[in-house]
Amino acid sequence: MPKATRSNDWGFPRWRGYSASREATNVRICDRHGCDEPGNCPAPKAPNSPDRWHFCQKHAAEYNSKWDYFEGLDKAEKAARAKAERQESEGYAEASHYGWTGSGDGSRSADEMRALELLELEADADFAAIKKAYRVKAKLVHPDVKPGDDEAAQEFQKLQVAYDVLRVAEERREWKG
């Protein structure tokens, strides 16, 4: 009588490797005429249609570059849908500068850049330089130094707001990093 062998496919974790199956796998070829690459990027044949083309990555990118998401809509509805989509994605565009590396490489927001400009500093200034520049400028226009001078008081308030913007950004970077 032959000895019974145990399968490696029982229980958890799976004891057999995931790529160790012996049966042939079906590979769908790109639907673009003349392309022999695997078509693993589905793309809709028409808006709101369940039918899909299956392209390779190169042809999927080409197909999507020409895709009109608002085809068939009248002009007013097209503008309204485009505006709604822009509003939904504004948060991503606005926050995109937070995800990059250190200062001076596009990581500062427009508010931070205006604050640095007010303090007459370069875009890659570190926080010690920011603090020093703020103190020097604030001493010149502080209300205790120039009492009753409305222009100096406004300039002091601008400096304070600029420093606060930069301080909060620096704290956020320290917390994040």
Rank of each mutant, 00 (worst) to 15 (best):
Cys35Ala: 15
Cys35Asn: 10
Cys35Pro: 03
Cys35His: 14
Cys35Trp: 13
Cys35Val: 13
Cys35Phe: 14
Asp36Phe: 10
Asp36Leu: 14
Asp36Trp: 07
Asp36Cys: 12
Glu37Arg: 15
Glu37Leu: 14
Pro38Trp: 02
Pro38Asn: 05
Pro38Ser: 15
Pro38Asp: 10
Pro38His: 13
Pro38Gln: 14
Pro38Tyr: 05
Pro38Thr: 11
Gly39Thr: 06
Gly39Lys: 03
Gly39Asp: 08
Asn40Gly: 13
Asn40Thr: 12
Asn40Val: 11
Asn40Trp: 12
Cys41Gly: 02
Cys41Asp: 09
Cys41Met: 14
Pro42Asn: 06
Pro42His: 01
Pro42Asp: 11
Pro42Leu: 01
Pro42Thr: 03
Ala43Met: 10
Ala43Phe: 09
Ala43Cys: 13
Pro44Gly: 10
Pro44Val: 11
Pro44Leu: 07
Pro44Asp: 05
Lys45Trp: 08
Lys45Met: 05
Lys45Tyr: 02
Lys45Gln: 08
Ala46Tyr: 06
Pro47His: 05
Pro47Asn: 03
Pro47Ser: 09
Asn48Leu: 02
Ser49Ile: 01
Ser49Phe: 04
Ser49Arg: 05
Ser49Glu: 10
Pro50Ile: 13
Pro50Met: 06
Pro50Phe: 12
Pro50Cys: 07
Pro50Tyr: 14
Asp51Gln: 08
Asp51Phe: 13
Arg52Val: 15
Arg52Glu: 12
Arg52His: 14
Arg52Tyr: 04
Arg52Leu: 14
Trp53Ile: 03
His54Lys: 03
His54Met: 04
His54Ser: 07
His54Trp: 13
Phe55Pro: 03
Phe55Gln: 02
Phe55Arg: 00
Phe55Asn: 00
Cys56Gly: 06
Cys56Trp: 00
Cys56Gln: 09
Cys56Pro: 01
Cys56Phe: 04
Gln57Glu: 09
Gln57Val: 10
Gln57Ser: 06
Gln57His: 07
Gln57Leu: 10
Lys58Glu: 06
Lys58Met: 10
Lys58Cys: 07
Lys58Asn: 04
His59Tyr: 13
His59Lys: 01
His59Gln: 02
His59Phe: 04
His59Val: 10
His59Ile: 12
His59Arg: 01
Ala60Leu: 06
Ala60Lys: 10
Ala60Glu: 13
Ala60Tyr: 04
Ala61Ile: 02
Ala61Asn: 12
Ala61His: 05
Ala61Ser: 13
Glu62Ile: 09
Glu62Tyr: 10
Glu62Asp: 15
Glu62Arg: 03
Tyr63Asn: 00
Tyr63Pro: 03
Tyr63Glu: 01
Tyr63Ser: 02
Tyr63Trp: 06
Asn64Phe: 12
Asn64Lys: 07
Asn64Met: 11
